[in-house]
Write a protein that binds this DNA or RNA. Structure first.
Length: 354
DNA sequence: CGGCTTTGACCAGCGC
DNA sequence: GCGCTGGTCAAAGCCG
């Protein structure tokens, strides 16, 4: 059986977080199973199977991301609200520091198996500015090129025209979210359609890092996928930005399958009880899926007073986002007790691994 | 033929 | 200022 692992830690800047894990696993199962009921089962499904499907739930948020992240993004709430969202035992300042370290240290995935990275969220998320800035830059370059000697290297000119990369002085990045997934598959399917636009070798790691972009028009969400150099079976997925469209897969009404884990037949998933670890541990939650998939996911939910809101608006799987909303008030108790996922994973499932 | 991946090159940010 | 690294672009090729 594969393990799904969730954690609430801060990923390093290098590993950042990925959102693919849980979802990817679920989505991957969908693909494997084809058009049957599992075909539409998402990771959220796995997490939310115990939920009341008649009421708004994790699925709702996942299937309707715009609800959580409507463009244009709403103004950031007061910082105080963010601190309220954090468990009392978690020092906000400490988190802030951690977050800062994560974003400033060149920590390779190998050293940071952590999954979720929440970067400082710009006050004005600029998912649209990415393309617009590029266009502006392109215009500038074209203007410059107008005066260039046409006999110059055409290739060079062509490249200049094609690569107007002028960016903002301080490039504002979308809030990012990362988590780790134990999977043999690099690019897990999270229900959205991604297009690979680059691949780079990762320093201190034999495994390359792949860059994906959401193929939906107007959606600037990006995803980075890389394997941990320490454990090649761990895939670190990092989401950046927010989806401006519903998940193309896993339509409503397909969820809520198999409250009984036993009903999960291959190649579908089995999401047994999460194994809770201390919040400081990197792998607080462990889920098990079908053996063939062998996927373990780790997520980190650490956020700072300045990143909480952005975090919620990020492209991070909506179910997790909403999960924060749902659990924030009781986060402390959850952490102290059975873990953050106790309200997501049916106790029935959790007992399976006991 | 359209969509996606691969791949090499370029650019910007950052540290020294 | 220079070099390294992360991130991005887009042509070329592959695939269904």
């Amino acid at each position: 059986m594969a393990n799904l692992r969730f954690s609430d830690e801060n990923p390093t800047a290098a590993s950042s977080f990925g959102g693919g894990s849980i979802f990817d696993m679920a989505a991957g199962a969908c693909e494997v199973s084809g058009g049957d009921k599992w075909g539409s089962l998402g990771f959220m499904d796995l997490l939310g199977i115990h939920q009341d499907f008649s009421a708004p739930s994790l699925f709702d948020s996942f299937h309707h991301p715009p609800i959580l992240s409507p463009p244009p993004p709403p103004p950031l709430p007061p910082l105080s609200s963010a601190s309220e969202l954090l468990p009392p035992e978690i020092d906000t300042k400490q988190l802030l520091q951690q977050n800062h370290l994560q974003t400033s240290l060149p920590s390779p995935a190998s050293t940071v198996p952590e999954s979720s990275e929440v970067l400082n969220n710009p006050a004005t998320p600029n998912s649209s500015s990415i393309s617009s800035s590029s266009n502006e830059a392109a215009n500038d370059d074209q203007t410059k090129l107008a005066g260039d000697d046409e006999e110059q290297d055409q290739d060079k000119t062509k490249k200049l025209q094609l690569k107007p990369k002028k960016k903002n002085p301080k490039r504002q990045r979308e809030p990012r979210f990362a988590f780790m997934t134990k999977s043999e598959v690099d690019h897990l399917d999270d229900g959205y359609r991604w297009r690979k636009y680059g691949q780079k070798a990762v320093k201190n790691s034999p495994y390359p890092r792949s860059y994906y972009r959401c193929t939906s028009a107007g959606c600037g969400v990006k995803k980075r996928v890389e394997r941990s150099s320490d454990d090649s079976t761990i895939v670190v997925t990092t989401y950046e930005g927010q989806h401006t469209h519903p998940c193309p897969i896993t339509p409503r009404g397909t969820i809520g399958i198999a409250h009984d884990p036993s009903s999960f037949g291959a190649p579908s998933f089995v999401v047994p009880q999460p194994q809770y670890l201390h919040p400081q541990q990197q792998q607080p939650y462990i889920y098990t899926s079908s053996p063939s998939l062998n996927i373990t996911t780790t997520t980190t939910t650490t956020s700072t007073s300045t990143t909480s809101s952005s975090f919620i608006n990020s492209s991070f799987p909506a179910f997790l986002q909403e999960r924060r909303f749902m659990t924030i008030p009781s986060a402390a108790s959850l952490l102290r007790d059975d873990g953050l996922l106790q309200d997501i994973v049916p106790s029935q499932m959790r007992k399976l691994e006991e």
